[in-house]
Simulated scan of single mutants.
Amino acid sequence: MLVGAHESIAGGVANAVDRQLENGGNCGQIFTHSPQVWQDPSIDDTDAEAFRDRSQKHDVGPWVIHSSYLVNLCTPKDGLRAKSIDSMQKEIDAAAQLSIPYVNVHLGAHTGAGEQQGLDNAVSALDELTVPDGVTILIESDAGSGTKLGNKFDHLEYILEESTHELEVCLDTAHVFAAGYDLSTPAAVDTTFTQFDATVGLDNLACVHLNDSKHACGTNKDEHAHIGKGKIGESGMEAFINHSAIDPVPLVLETPSEDGKGFEWNINRVRDLANDPA
């Protein structure tokens, strides 16, 4: 199975491959810079080549670039919109440089403009981007606090249908659960996948952020927990991990490092629940 974690690029982006291998992962995700500030990726050609070579040599991939947390595609503010588009374009260019197939982004918040206007703002912002062959933008499901969009499958469906780009979706289990789609039992997992397929379409699911949730279903609270140790729980996580809908979708962990458990523990936990020894 394809399972890995969001790894640091400290010391050079190629180091993310080594960290992934140390944690037992075979796919993963990175930030190209701190996600909390407006900053451009700074990856030289030598490091990019080393990243590509190590990934190929050790068969680690696919990788995903996660865009900055500051990006807001739904915003009605011209200045923030321009910064968001510029930031996304640079992430897309970095993905092409690194031969990374996916750039993941949250839609953002409409901040009072209204749900429909926010969605339309996101579509028009996305359509200003130049996306080269070999790179696909993933729209991530959101927990939906405040005026953030992407918490409803209908939102994701609308963006995919209206954009001129061939977009796909990253489903975050903690976000989906917080947004009100239950994943805590095998029956609930089946129901949620049925709802997803009827709107977004399972053929548009390219990646999963696999996280348990510290908060109950429908709370709109985004706080990740170790696999099987949160409110989704072991039964729900096991059902999700083994569901035919996500085979062979890459599973990327964004679980916390606490209680003596980190990415290695969580990757092993996923493999245990999947009965996958490799």
Rank of each mutant, 00 (worst) to 15 (best):
V71P: 00
D120R: 12
V200I: 13
N204Y: 09
N268K: 15
D222Q: 08
A278M: 03
N211V: 07
F31Q: 08
N266L: 08
T199P: 04
A125P: 01
Q116G: 02
S184W: 05
F177R: 00
I43E: 07
L205I: 14
L202Y: 12
S8W: 10
F240S: 07
P248Q: 08
E162V: 00
G146A: 10
P256Y: 12
N104L: 08
D40F: 06
K229E: 14
A94C: 04
N211C: 03
D78P: 13
A96I: 00
I30C: 10
G79P: 03
C170N: 14
L129M: 12
Y181V: 02
E91D: 15
L80T: 15
P277I: 02
I137L: 12
P186N: 13
H66L: 04
I139C: 08
V249I: 12
A206C: 10
E234D: 06
I43M: 08
L126G: 14
H226L: 01
A82F: 03
T194A: 14
V131M: 03
Q195H: 14
A198Q: 15
D59P: 02
P41K: 06
R19A: 11
D154F: 03
I85S: 06
A94M: 01
N15Y: 06
I137M: 09
F177G: 04
P277V: 12
H33M: 01
R271T: 05
V189K: 05
D59W: 03
T32F: 03
V169R: 07
H165D: 09
H110S: 11
W38L: 11
A94V: 11
K57L: 13
N220M: 00
G112I: 04
E91T: 06
D203F: 07
S84F: 13
D86L: 07
H209K: 06
S145Q: 15
G24F: 02
A239Y: 07
F153R: 11
A198E: 14
D182F: 05
F51V: 12
E7P: 00
D222C: 08
D40E: 14
